[in-house]
């Protein structure tokens, strides 16, 4: 269908230079949000012909290192966040609601938002038809409703969307997507039908790429995080920015990393002009205050989209 596209065709080129300023509640310079990825990777998943990340199947090391996040890492991470009164917006494999109701209970007790990261993180969207993808969105909405949450946000499992995925999200009433990494502010997407914005997630400030792909040490990870925060805090004085730290209990929940994470949260909290919303609250604020006029401004820009 859209396999031959040279780009997504879903957003207009809109540089930060010359962009109208946006402002946040309380005059904050920066919205800082944490996205704990609470996932389940299956013991014996069906093989997706487009990706095979296992050594062999079943793969005890692959499975159990991820299971650590749900047995141990989650509590350690949630405890440090709760101590600092920072809520999470959870990128959730919604089957976690079935397998681990105690984890969901804890998230709800802490006032965390749950959004969908698919059913399992071992079910890549690669190769699924649009209608099959839609089934996962509908399943997510129904599953989250059962635990008292409205499905507003989306991150495709293992970030494997097709170009149709964002169209389906908009058609199904999803409010924001985290699949695109093109900006530091929320941005309206141009889709065939429905409304959808991108909210900045991060594939840079993300413990998996840092630790598992780039071999970043614990110290270096938090040097980077502080540098990222510092620069956005300065620039946010001009026009507000969003900083997301995407985290995984299976990574940061280990005893050799958790204290450095806690120290970073303390560092962020030592600044005055920071807003600590959930991703849903970022989307609500943006739709209410910026969506219409920013869309109008974008439509007047020249160039490709």
């Amino acid at each position: 269908m859209m396999e031959a596209s040279v780009d997504t065709g879903q957003y207009r080129y809109a540089p930060m230079r010359g962009r109208p300023k946006i402002s946040m509640p309380g005059g904050a310079r920066l919205a800082f949000w944490l996205a704990p990825n609470i996932e389940h990777y299956e013991w014996q998943p069906p093989i997706n012909p487009n990706r095979y990340p296992f050594r062999t199947l079943p793969d005890v090391l692959y499975y159990s290192s991820r299971d650590y996040g749900n047995r141990i890492g989650f509590r350690r991470l949630a405890d440090e966040m709760a101590k600092r009164d920072i809520r999470g917006s959870v990128s959730l494999s919604v089957a976690v609601c079935d397998h681990y109701p105690d984890i969901i209970q804890r998230c709800n007790d802490l006032g965390w938002e749950l959004f969908s990261h698919g059913v399992y993180n071992s079910r890549y969207f690669y190769g699924m038809t649009p209608e099959e993808q839609r089934q996962v969105v509908i399943d997510s909405r129904e599953t989250l409703a059962k635990v008292g949450q409205r499905l507003d946000g989306w991150l495709t499992p293992a970030i494997t969307p097709s170009l149709e995925t964002q169209e389906i999200l908009a058609q199904e009433g999803i409010r924001y997507t985290l699949d695109y990494f093109h900006d530091e502010q929320p941005m309206p997407l141009n889709l065939k039908s429905g409304k959808l914005i991108s909210v900045p997630y991060s594939i840079e400030m993300n413990d998996i790429p840092m630790v598992a792909w780039n071999n970043t040490s614990v110290d270096e990870m938090f040097v980077s995080l502080k540098a990222q925060f510092d620069r956005l805090y300065i620039e946010g004085a001009d026009s507000a920015r969003v900083m997301c730290f995407a985290i995984h209990p299976l990574v940061l929940g280990h005893p050799h990393r958790i204290d450095a994470f806690a120290e970073f949260l303390d560092y962020v909290k030592s600044h005055d002009q920071v807003w600590y919303p959930t991703a849903r609250e970022i989307a609500d604020w943006y739709y209410e205050n910026h969506y219409d006029w920013m869309s109008a401004w974008l439509s007047g820009l020249e160039g490709e989209q």
């Binding site: 079935d98 397998h99 109701p101 059913v119 399992y120 190769g127 699924m128």
Partner: peptide
Amino acid sequence: IHPTGPAYLETPLRRHRQMD
């Protein structure tokens, strides 16, 4: 990209309060 097929949506081990 190779298609996954309809069976790819099946989750027989999605069980309440149990591992897979």
